[in-house]
């Protein structure tokens, strides 16, 4: 079950108006939607059922950190896709028909179109991937090259994700010190959330 569908199945949990005012607008970027964030917060809150302001503060923190992790994972997928395309753009030239003239014509007039097809048309992508594999460039080899090219950026994102995950764990521990019931509920809620993060990031939102 994706996070979006899970959100629609729970009743809406909101902090008090006073706390909502203090929390202010959520820190969203790009095309992130307010209603999706509110649903995400509501999903976590419905599992935890915070009863006091500290409970809400920690719930909001777990939500924000989970949101940050989800965002970083989506960016990581974008990086891999970017370098995957870059690698394919280079390799696709090897699909030119034989002969000096035909090779030149393919590279000038056809290679870019095929790259666009590879990116936008799933059926054409399968055929191009097969053709590349026949030339010794399997899909996994292309992916490996993409990872190598984006290694520095992927590593930076992985470190950031690790920091956010540690902070989320710390928040869960704080919740445990504050209220044992809250810690157990936060723990159970975040297991579902973490699984949701992977699904959403893989789907590329």
């Amino acid at each position: 079950m994706s996070m979006s569908s899970a959100v629609s199945e729970v009743s809406v949990f909101k902090p008090t108006n006073e706390l909502s005012e203090v929390f202010g607008e959520p820190a969203l970027v790009g095309l992130e939607k307010r209603e999706v964030y509110d649903g995400f917060l509501s999903l976590i809150a419905s599992a935890i059922k915070p009863t006091d302001p500290i409970g809400w503060l920690l719930t909001k923190d777990v939500t924000d950190l989970s949101w940050d992790i989800r965002r970083e994972r989506i960016i990581k997928v974008e990086i891999i896709k970017y370098y995957q395309k870059e690698v394919v753009a280079e390799l696709i030239k090897s699909l030119a028909p034989p002969g000096q003239f035909m090779t030149a014509m393919y590279r000038i007039f056809q290679a870019d179109d095929d790259l666009t097809l590879w990116e936008t048309d799933p059926e054409a992508r399968v055929k191009i991937d097969e053709a590349l594999a026949a030339k010794g460039h399997s899909t996994s080899a292309v992916l490996a090259r993409a990872y190598m090219r984006g290694a520095t950026q992927i590593d930076t994102i992985d470190k950031r994700i690790a920091v956010y995950e540690r902070r989320r764990d710390t928040t869960l521990s704080e919740a445990g010190l504050w209220n044992d019931r809250l810690r157990q509920q936060l723990d159970q809620a975040t297991t579902a959330i973490i699984e949701g993060e992977f699904t959403e990031a893989a789907e590329g939102d």
Partner: peptide, 8 residues
């Protein structure tokens, strides 16, 4: 506001 909310 938050300090008042936290301290009830």
């Amino acid at each position: 506001k938050l300090a008042r909310a936290l301290s009830g």
